[in-house]
Design a protein around this nucleic acid. Structure first.
Length: 109
DNA sequence: AGCCTGACTCAAA
DNA sequence: CTTTGAGCCAGGC
């Protein structure tokens, strides 16, 4: 488990199905880094894999804001989320409705 | 090691 | 509810 923090982040984010979202802090906390939300965001910025493999666009802020999407722009991100059936209103999402928390720890296969 | 940046978060005003 | 400010983590120079 001395794998890079990124690897774990990607594995966790990969678990988020279409129509559902998660937050940076949630992922960070799942990896035993409750204060590592920024590191998670940093990992997302790298985005070494295609969005099909790692749906970076399904990771939003803890307050329900869409967050950012690098050069692509937050509009693109919101658009993708809407296409998956997620209702985005004023750049915000209802976490109580779309938040995915049924994660399984990476590497436990 | 030190300093700066960034798809963040929380608390306070 | 919106706006500020400070805190935290990993990476690059």
């Amino acid at each position: 488990m001395s794998d890079n923090f990124f690897e774990l982040v990607y594995l966790v984010v990969k678990q988020v199905p279409p129509g559902r979202v998660t937050t940076y802090s949630a992922v960070a906390r799942f990896l035993n880094n409750p204060r590592g939300s920024r590191a998670v965001g940093w990992a997302m910025r790298q985005c070494p894999y295609p969005n099909d493999n790692v749906p970076c666009h399904r990771v939003i802020k803890a307050d329900g804001s869409v967050g950012g999407y690098g050069a692509e722009g937050v509009l693109k991100k919101a658009s993708l989320l809407r296409k998956e059936g997620i209702r985005v209103r004023q750049g915000r999402i209802d976490l109580s409705r779309y938040f995915f928390k049924n994660f399984s720890y990476p590497g436990s296969s």
